[in-house]
Design a protein around this nucleic acid. Structure first.
Lengths: 152, 152
DNA sequence: CTCAAAGTGTAGCCATGGCAACAAATTTGA
DNA sequence: TCAAATTTGTTGCCATGGCTACACTTTGAG
């Protein structure tokens, strides 16, 4: 668009490629909320017997109105089932996603701890990082953690 | 909020603490855009001599209208200076932030490569991960990369 | 059984960051 | 020089995810 034919100046990085990178991050953001919600819903159902709007709101530190709005979207997207004034449930797809996320979350947390990040910080960082780690990197994380555990 | 006094059910994680985690991620998101923009503006100024709206739009893969909107915000926040129909500049604060981001970006990328992530994937993942890595973890990343380099 | 408390839903507001379409300025090339 | 192409700005639309305020169920204590 800017200067195609006359390459009078060094191109630091292929613009198109860089755009792909940022698109990838944007897409990740769109799924992040969904992932966090289904993961927590699954957790709550397991540990508390049911997932309720109040609990989600408390855990996420947002208002129940916000939770409701997100739940509406997740319902629309076929991840969550909700009946009025009743606790929340996951669809098969939701459960699947939750499982995947939990697994990934664990891998990232374990990896961070394995390389020496203090537990509390590892938990904090994992929360943000997990959504942006590719399958390939995840595999490497897993292998690394395994290796480290053998040694120690 | 839900069940304080009667702990009839196991608490899986301190809700308040978990809320802090998610708040942290949300804050990170708010700064992400700013960080990406100042970083790219700095890059463009260095390599191209100037940073222009079109270039930012191309690199980020968004419309120039979007870029303009973000620039407006960054201006409001004192990171970017823009005069109408002129190329973009960073304030001192903006330059500082850009430097910090570039450094951090490099550390994350190098670390991923050091643990064996293929270069192209490392670049991709770093883009999303960098904004969510704490100073402590970053330090550990750096140390690890250094150590690995010595070995090889 | 009733009624207040707790939980849930809804409406309306805000900022962000997407977009397209149109307007205006600047740059360029013939 | 001056018209066309490019770049930039603006407007108005959308979805998301924040919030408060208010309305409505459900629940549970008395």
């Amino acid at each position: 668009m800017t200067k195609e034919m006359p390459p009078k100046i060094i191109i630091p990085a292929d613009p198109e490629h860089q755009a792909l990178r940022f698109n990838r991050v944007r897409e990740a953001h769109q799924t992040e909320t969904a992932e966090d919600y289904v993961e927590l819903i699954a957790d709550l159902i397991e540990t508390q017997g049911e997932a309720r709007v109040v609990d989600l709101a408390t855990r996420f530190g947002v208002s129940h109105a916000t939770v409701n709005k997100v739940i509406l979207r997740l319902n629309r997207e076929g991840l969550v089932v909700n009946k009025k004034y009743r606790s929340l449930f996951l669809t098969d797809e939701g459960r699947e996603l939750a499982a995947k996320c939990r697994e990934r979350h664990q891998v990232v947390t374990d990896f961070l701890k394995a390389i020496g990040v203090p537990d509390d910080i590892a938990e904090l960082d994992a929360e943000g990082v997990e959504h942006h780690v590719s399958a390939e990197t995840l595999k490497i994380f897993k292998a690394f953690t395994r290796k480290t555990r053998k040694i120690s």
